[in-house]
């Protein structure tokens, strides 16, 4: 800090960025953390988004209960499907809201003015979106376990849910940044998002279904691999194209 104040030559900014090898990556991570923390702090104070997502998720489970007659026999085979439809629907609610907040009062423009790499904003938003989704899932799982007397707190299932949520938010954050800038806004997001995240939904439903029915691990492994591959590919793609989505 002292050094920065002392150094007043016009080149100092660039020198600092180029000269100190560690600083740029440190700055990058700090920017990601700042964007994510801003969202989480705002949410912890208002709780608007989380409460809406949660109530919505519980309502979806209720509707499924009557739509599918979740009795003991059918429960085993449909639990994973019900869970993932609930997560996906509740997720769009969260994604829409979290980007709409940025757009509404010009906060996104403010963020873009910050002297950090644009992709840091993407990762920050993606992390906060992922956090919201995971919080909702952490609450929905025990409620579902209670209501239907099945234990969903199994490490394998939690891993599948984590991987699925990562893929979902990686694409969802990118596409929600696009959909808030269109005329139809909220309506647009599920239409854009659902066909793209279909592989995640298929793999996650299959993997968690196989896990819940105690199938051998070599039946689950291909789906797990698929989830990991999807996550890696789409995080990389979103990282590369996010610039074009927020460019003015």
């Amino acid at each position: 800090m002292k050094k920065i104040i002392e150094d007043r030559s016009p080149l100092s900014l660039r020198e600092r960025a180029e000269g100190e090898g560690k600083t740029p990556s440190g700055n990058y991570l700090r920017a990601i953390g700042a964007v994510a923390w801003k969202d989480l702090a705002a949410e912890l104070r208002s709780k608007e988004l989380l409460s809406a997502m949660l109530v919505f998720a519980l309502l979806v489970i209720f509707i499924f209960n009557f739509a599918l007659e979740l009795d003991v026999k059918t429960r085993d085979s449909v639990t994973s499907g019900v869970l993932w439809v609930t997560f996906v629907f509740a997720g769009t609610l969260g994604l829409n809201r979290s980007m709409a907040i940025e757009k509404d009062r010009g906060c996104l423009d403010g963020l873009l003015l910050a002297p950090v790499d644009r992709s840091a904003i993407y990762f920050g938003k993606a992390i906060s979106n992922l956090a919201f989704m995971l919080i909702v899932e952490i609450i929905v799982l025990p409620v579902y376990s209670l209501l239907y007397n099945t234990n969903l707190f199994q490490p394998g299932l939690l891993l599948i849910i984590l991987l699925g949520s990562i893929g979902y938010t990686a694409v969802g954050t990118l596409l929600s940044a696009m959909s808030v800038q269109t005329r139809t806004r909220d309506v647009m997001l599920p239409i854009l998002l659902f066909p793209i995240i279909l592989p995640v939904v298929i793999a996650a439903i299959r993997a968690s279904g196989a896990y819940l029915q105690n199938m051998p691990f070599d039946q689950i492994l291909p789906w797990l691999n698929l989830l990991i591959v999807y996550d890696v590919i789409f995080i990389a793609v979103a990282f590369m194209v996010f610039d074009y989505v927020v460019e003015e």
Partner: peptide, 26 residues
């Protein structure tokens, strides 16, 4: 912006569809 978003979306779609194909092929 229309062109940029369109290009991003076709790119994302072009990557996602083969994965969908593979995933159902399982």
């Amino acid at each position: 912006r229309r062109a940029r978003f369109g290009a991003v979306y076709t790119l994302v779609g072009a990557i996602s569809v083969p994965i969908t194909f593979l995933s159902i092929r399982l």
